[in-house]
Structure formats: C-alpha cells, structure tokens
C-alpha cells in the first residue's frame, strides 16, 4: 500500500469510480471526499458514539467498493453513497434495536444554526429555543421523518436527491417532509 495516487480536486466522482475499478488504491480519494460529510450525516441521524460511526462508515465504504459497478452514472454519486449510508444506518439501528438518545450528541449547536434556513419552522419556533430542545425533538421523531428533515434542511438536498437517497418517489418526499414538520412542531413547544 505504498502506492501514491493523486487526483485533481475537481475530478468528478464518476471518474474516481472508474479509477477505483481499475485500481483499488484510487478508492481512497473517494473515501476522503465523503468521509467527513458522511460522518456528519450519521451523527445527525443519531449515531453519536464515535466508535459506532467509524464502524458504520467502514461498512458504508466497503459496500460502496463492493458495489461500484452498480453505480449508475445517471445518478449523482453523492446520492448513491448517501443511500448506502442511509441503509447502513437503518441496519445499525435495527441491529441495536434502539432509537438514538442524544446523550452524547455534540451537534446540537450545529443543528440550531440550520434552523433559520427552515422557513416554515422559523416562524413557529420560539426564539428562546435551545439547541438541546431541537435536538431532543428531532430525536423523538420516527427515523424516516428525522432523516427527511436532516437531508432537506441540514444536508440541503433537493427533493430528487432525497428521493434517490431514501429510495422513495419524489412526490412522497414532499409529503414526508410536511408530515415531519407537523410532527416536529408540537415537540418543540415548551410544555412537551
């Protein structure tokens, strides 16, 4: 593993996929490109322990490598790898038979920063809302609703991308997000 491969920063994902198929060492560039983003995504979904995230991420990249030939260039690679991360995270939750609890979540402030971007929610939220309130409310949501909100407002994904990641029809994405917001709002009220 002494081989050093380098790629220009603007190299498209599809080119890196093709290079990885030819030489596995090239896959490191894809891992580098997505490692941080996926790590943040997993944390937002509720995988809070660093060790757990590392395990899930390793599985994500191994599965990605194993299925590189399945990548359809008509689809954004980022959507495809996020889909694998989504599936792995759901499997992780199922295997643990737990819902995330947020006790060790360091990302509360990060979440709160994103709230102004949520036009509808912004008007509804009390200004004294703390990061912990939002975090706790998100964690009470069903994983599919939490993921829809995370992808839309924290990962800033388009509906078509969310459709590709969650593998649901585009029309269902809007419905899912609307329902997620509806369920989130009561959880944000101080009495809850």
């Amino acid at each position: 593993m002494e081989t050093m491969l380098s790629f220009p920063p603007e190299a498209p994902d599809a080119a890196l996929v093709r290079a990885s198929l030819a030489q596995k060492e090239a896959f490191a560039a894809l891992i580098r490109r997505y490692q941080e983003r996926l790590d943040r995504y997993l944390r937002r979904l509720g995988v809070f322990r660093v060790e757990d995230r590392e395990d899930v991420l390793q599985n994500v990249f191994l599965k990605t490598y194993r299925n590189l030939n399945e990548f359809d260039e008509g689809l954004a690679f980022s959507s495809w790898i996020y889909r694998i991360a989504h599936n792995e995270t759901m499997s992780f939750f199922r295997a643990r038979q737990v819902r995330p609890d947020g006790h060790t979540d360091p990302d509360g402030a990060d979440l709160l920063e994103q709230v102004p971007g949520v036009t509808h929610l912004e008007t509804e939220l009390d200004r004294s809302l703390t990061a912990q309130t939002l975090r706790a409310a998100l964690l009470k949501l069903d994983p599919k609703y939490r993921e829809a909100l995370v992808l839309r407002y924290f990962e800033e994904r388009e509906y078509t991308e969310i459709s590709d990641i969650m593998q649901i029809p585009v029309g269902s994405v809007g419905t899912l997000i609307a329902r997620a917001k509806k369920r989130l709002l009561p959880l944000l009220s101080p009495s809850v």
Partner: peptide, 10 residues
Amino acid sequence: LASKVLDQIE
C-alpha cells in the same frame, strides 16, 4: 479511515 478500509479490502 481510507487506509483502514483499503487494508480491510486487501
């Protein structure tokens, strides 16, 4: 992580 994944692949 990239090294770990590549090692595991190997």
